[in-house]
Simulated assay, not measured.
Amino acid sequence: MATVGFDKLYYSKITEATDGTETYAAPVLLAKAIKCDLSIDLAEATLYADDAAQTVVKEFKSGKLSLGVDDIGPSAAENLTGAVLDTNGVLVSASEDGGKPVAIGFRAKKANGKYRYFWLYRVVFGVPATNLETKGDSIKFATPTIEGTITQRNKVDGNGKHPWKTEVNEDDSGVLAAIISAWFTTVYEPDYTTGT
């Protein structure tokens, strides 16, 4: 179903164990959401035999996430880009800075008024783009855009795979209300247990 809105933009800091597996902190509101562009790169291979394609494999390689937001506060900028606040409260970005991976959660309103919820498990952001323009005859808003690279997480799920995204529609059959109500209180962990 088509979506008609985008809001509730959260991030969760990641702590990595010595083996590289991730633990997620409590989600924090990042900013007010304006726009989200998500594109995916696939690793592809085709095996040809007897003059025809016999096997085609397409696997997630990485993705790009571009977020338009109303503002990126200093705390979020520190956590997402590696910039630091000096003792005077000035945000300082250095060429040696690099963002640490975070999880990103958000929701999209569907045409029927229900929501689709997302978590991207591992995103590394760069320095936000700044677009400024002098005020002319009309008012134009200038808002920051921050871009990140999405990768799979190191931690395996219950099926032994490395997920990169989860998503759920609140009106899908079999989705518990508790899953939706807790979506932004913790980063969702896949659950493959059966209720027997």
Rank of each mutant, 00 (worst) to 15 (best):
K64C: 05
D70Y: 13
S62T: 11
V57T: 14
D71L: 10
S93I: 03
S93K: 00
G82D: 01
S75T: 15
A77R: 06
A76H: 03
G63V: 08
L80W: 02
A52P: 00
G73S: 12
K58N: 14
K61F: 03
A53N: 07
V92P: 03
G73W: 04
S66N: 14
T81K: 03
E78S: 12
T87S: 13
N79W: 04
A53E: 11
A94W: 06
K64Q: 15
N88Q: 12
E59K: 15
S66F: 02
V84L: 14
F60C: 13
P74K: 09
G73K: 04
E78D: 07
A53H: 07
S62Q: 15
A76P: 05
L67E: 05
Q54V: 11
D70P: 03
A83F: 08
D86H: 00
D71M: 10
I72C: 03
T55C: 05
N79M: 01
E78T: 13
V90Q: 14
V90M: 13
D86P: 00
I72E: 00
V56Y: 12
T81A: 02
E59C: 04
E59D: 13
I72Y: 00
S93Y: 02
P74M: 09
A52Y: 05
G73M: 05
L80P: 00
F60W: 05
D71G: 07
G89E: 01
D71I: 08
P74Y: 07
N79F: 05
G68V: 02
L67P: 13
G63Y: 10
G68M: 06
N88A: 12
L65V: 15
A52T: 14
A83R: 09
G73P: 03
A77P: 00
K58Y: 07
G63C: 04
V84H: 11
S62L: 09
P74D: 15
G73T: 04
A94L: 12
T87W: 01
T81M: 04
V69P: 10
